[in-house]
Design a protein around this nucleic acid. Structure first.
Lengths: 360, 360
DNA sequence: TTGTAAGCGTTATCAG
DNA sequence: CTGATAACGCTTACAA
């Protein structure tokens, strides 16, 4: 259809089309915008045909459009979105799975996704955000961080030309933003309920102090209480360190030593469960015979001797989280949704070999 | 220093500053560009002070600048770069490690990095690239693909407003582009040399048909030839499938069955080595007693029973590959380098427990 | 050393 | 239904 782009020297402009059609560029602008009330069907068709023939690309002169539209304070869709993830996120399947889900939705829609991570060091500095944000090139953002961080990022964004554009939060809710969450309380319940069903009572729970882990904690307690058991008499809390595996392992080790009656560990995530298994082996314990393990996420396998994943875990639909967050953001950007929305996605327990009844 | 941004309603323009200083916006433009020959030191200082006070942000009115500069065919730096990776790259530590290295360089320089992956399906379609590319918002690209794919991507990019902007290739060289490579031939040599040193002779080599695996192959042969051995009499080639682990495992299985004298496998990468270990176990073989394994990359561990990485592997400096590619691209973008450059980074063998002398 | 004029490509507004 | 005009904010070229 389109003629070979013989000359890439100069971009095709509205004026070029207007010249060929014997009209003014204003009419061309109207026709190409699908203005049926102010342009005759006939000329409109002619203009569109010429535009196609010349290979007019509206996105090419985006800069001019934005400049013109600024006069009346209108926003243009730039087809550019950003995600704010913790530094080092690319190493964690947890985040890359969400990332992958987002890409799956954005790419077919021709939205480009840029990555911005924030370390604590950067947060401390008074650095401005990169130019793309300052100049308002970014249509929307997806954000996933601890609450202290999200607050800071939102403030930074709002202070740029990003202004009041949509932000969607994943996993952790952020005030005033749409969010895609998971059933955090239920995830804790499912893990604990499974272990209690098997007969475990004394359980070590690795957790972080902030959401969604604190909700997970509530679910764990609920499972105990449903059985008339006092969670505080049976549960042991061991701290989980977000970015320090050694510290996490030491905390587990200390807990196992201090509470030798423990027969199971609810780990902060799959990766931590694998660390727990390794620790157990070093202590001469076998999984699941001496110690049952439950993970969260279902993104990191715990391979047995034959390479099969043996980790009982609470699966979080992380890929779908990414997809839904992307869809939600697109709805906001395109103006199809103005109210903020919170989507909560279901979790489910996947029973594999790392849990078994305790040996009495 | 800067006054609190009291009004975010309207952006500060050159005219605003000019009004406050009693000069024209032209003088302001010159002063802010550091033009010392055409502006008196005095007015220049005054203007800069007012600009700071008003919180003038050059990046805010980027659109106007680009529009003006287009007249004389100049390029503006947009502080936006793209990377083209295979679809699903976010699941592979190999790519995310490179990705991480790139981010480490780009982020402090305030360059935003966007992700674009290309599946074969997309390649087949005649889809245009996303608007950010079409309109020339992207300053440069880093590309990592099989050769057939890179060619296609480059053509696509050149056909947009991206035009002749710099492209840096990683791992695989691309004609006419700067590249960051690794010592592919040497990596094969190191793997084979290590096994031959241990006394292995009959080795299965998992490989892909394209670079850099074919160079790796040359290195493997060199190790044989240095010992006066005919590689073709000892080496078994088994195909490695880029995106199909089951097929890869089947190929390994078939090779082990067809060539029972084999005592070692040179796997396509760490991940494949782990698959080989699992396969070996299923066949009742022990690693390294019955089968030695060498991987490549050093990004995926092969954990032993205690969780320690036992995989002997040829380490590729993937993070540094990402960093160097980013640095190279920045040099090109900033005009500090016009000639194309090929950097080759060193590899080294890391001996761990998955290799041992063959049991005779 | 500074000011003036014109234009980058688009769009809103008003006139015909 | 269509055209003319001005403006978005900036930069180059030329004039003072």
């Amino acid at each position: 259809m389109a003629s070979p782009h013989q000359t890439r020297m100069r971009a095709v402009t509205l004026q070029d089309i207007a010249d060929r059609c014997g009209v003014t560029k204003m009419t061309v602008s109207r026709a190409l915008h699908g203005d049926t009330r102010n342009v005759s069907m006939e000329t409109s068709a002619r203009i569109k045909a010429v535009a196609l023939e010349l290979g007019y690309d509206p996105s090419f002169n985006h800069a001019a459009r934005r400049l013109a539209l600024r006069k009346c304070g209108q926003d243009v869709v730039n087809h550019l979105v950003a995600m704010f993830f913790p530094s080092g996120f690319q190493q964690w399947p947890y985040y890359t799975t969400i990332f992958g889900g987002m890409l799956e939705v954005f790419m077919p829609e021709k939205f480009s996704l840029l990555t911005h991570y924030t370390s604590f060091a950067e947060r401390a500095s008074e650095n401005a955000l990169p130019p793309v944000f300052m100049r308002g090139d970014v249509d929307g953002a997806i954000i996933s961080r601890s609450s202290a961080h999200t607050q800071w990022i939102c403030e930074r964004l709002r202070a740029t030309a990003f202004a009041e554009r949509p932000i969607v939060s994943v996993i952790t809710p952020v005030e005033g933003c749409s969010a895609v969450l998971i059933e955090a309380e239920l995830s804790g319940y499912l893990a604990a309920n499974h272990l209690l069903d098997l007969g475990h009572r004394h359980i070590i729970h690795m957790e972080a102090a902030n959401p969604p882990h604190d909700q997970r904690m509530c679910g764990i307690c609920r499972a105990y209480e449903e059985r008339g058991l006092d969670p505080h008499a049976h549960l042991v809390y061991a701290q989980w360190f977000f970015d320090d595996e050694n510290a996490t392992v030491e905390a587990m080790d200390a807990a196992l030593t201090a509470y030798p009656r423990s027969t199971a560990i609810i780990a902060a995530n799959d990766r931590t469960a694998v660390l727990a298994r390794d620790l157990a082996h070093r202590r001469g314990m076998r999984v699941p015979d001496d110690l049952s393990l439950v993970g969260f996420d279902d993104v990191t396998p715990m391979p047995d001797a034959l390479g099969h994943n043996m980790l009982t875990t609470v699966r979080l639909p992380l890929q779908e989280v990414g997809q839904q967050a992307a869809r939600l953001l697109l709805q906001h950007i395109r103006g199809h949704r103005r109210d903020i929305e919170q989507i909560t996605l279901p979790v489910n327990l996947i029973e594999r070999g790392s849990t078994a009844p305790p040996r009495v």
